[in-house]
């Protein structure tokens, strides 16, 4: 049951990203990457290589749609790699129920915010610097990371609020 929901969410979030959010134009600097929510919201007990493989295919699908060559793949895999370390850093230990997903209930508001913020920053740094491909426009790229990251965080938090209720009752 839960697997089907994840699969549905996988494709829904790709379509949301490529059909709607990529057409949002905000001053030439801001492009929210909301699809990272999918990796953030996977259950605590997800095996390492499942995590990496899902992230790989998610990034690859986004790349196919955006004509960008493997930069989303690389940044999303990096995000998936960092996730267990950030979780361990913030919670100290693995939560008791491995089937639980990160949410306001399981992590608490503050921890969830910091968790999302750190991982989004890692993802956006890799993404935007790979897009520039060299450090020529360093400050401009940092501005893009911060602005886009902020908006992504906002959308991700909204996503957590929306997904909170059904998983809590599961």
């Amino acid at each position: 049951m839960f697997r089907w929901k994840l699969l549905l969410m996988f494709f829904a979030i790709v379509l949301l990203q490529v059909l709607i959010l990529n057409n949002v134009y905000l001053g030439g600097y801001i492009n929210p990457q909301v699809y990272v929510l999918f990796v953030l919201i996977l259950p605590f007990g997800t095996r390492g290589w499942h995590l990496l493989l899902l992230a790989f295919f998610l990034g690859m699908l986004i790349d196919v749609f955006e004509d960008s060559i493997a930069i989303h793949t690389a940044s999303t895999v990096m995000l998936a790699f960092a996730r267990p370390f950030v979780l361990r850093l913030l919670t100290g230990k693995q939560p008791d129920d491995a089937g639980d997903v990160p949410s306001f209930r399981t992590l608490g508001t503050m921890t969830l915010l910091v968790y999302s913020l750190i991982l989004i920053l890692i993802h956006h740094l890799v993404l935007f610097f790979m897009e520039m491909f060299h450090f020529r426009d360093f400050t401009e790229t940092i501005v893009r990371v911060v602005l886009s990251g902020g908006l992504t965080l906002l959308f991700v938090i909204i996503g957590f609020v929306l997904f909170n209720s059904p998983t809590a009752k599961r």
Binding site: G48, W49, I69, A70, I71, T73, V77
Partner: peptide
């Protein structure tokens, strides 16, 4: 976990770098 991450990341980086010179990254 680390080795699998390395493999996937190298695949992604290889695709990015090779696309700078060859126009065969057709999938993307």
């Amino acid at each position: 976990f680390f080795f699998f991450f390395l493999v996937l990341q190298v695949v992604a980086l290889f695709l990015t770098l090779s696309s700078q010179h060859f126009q065969q990254a057709y999938l993307f």
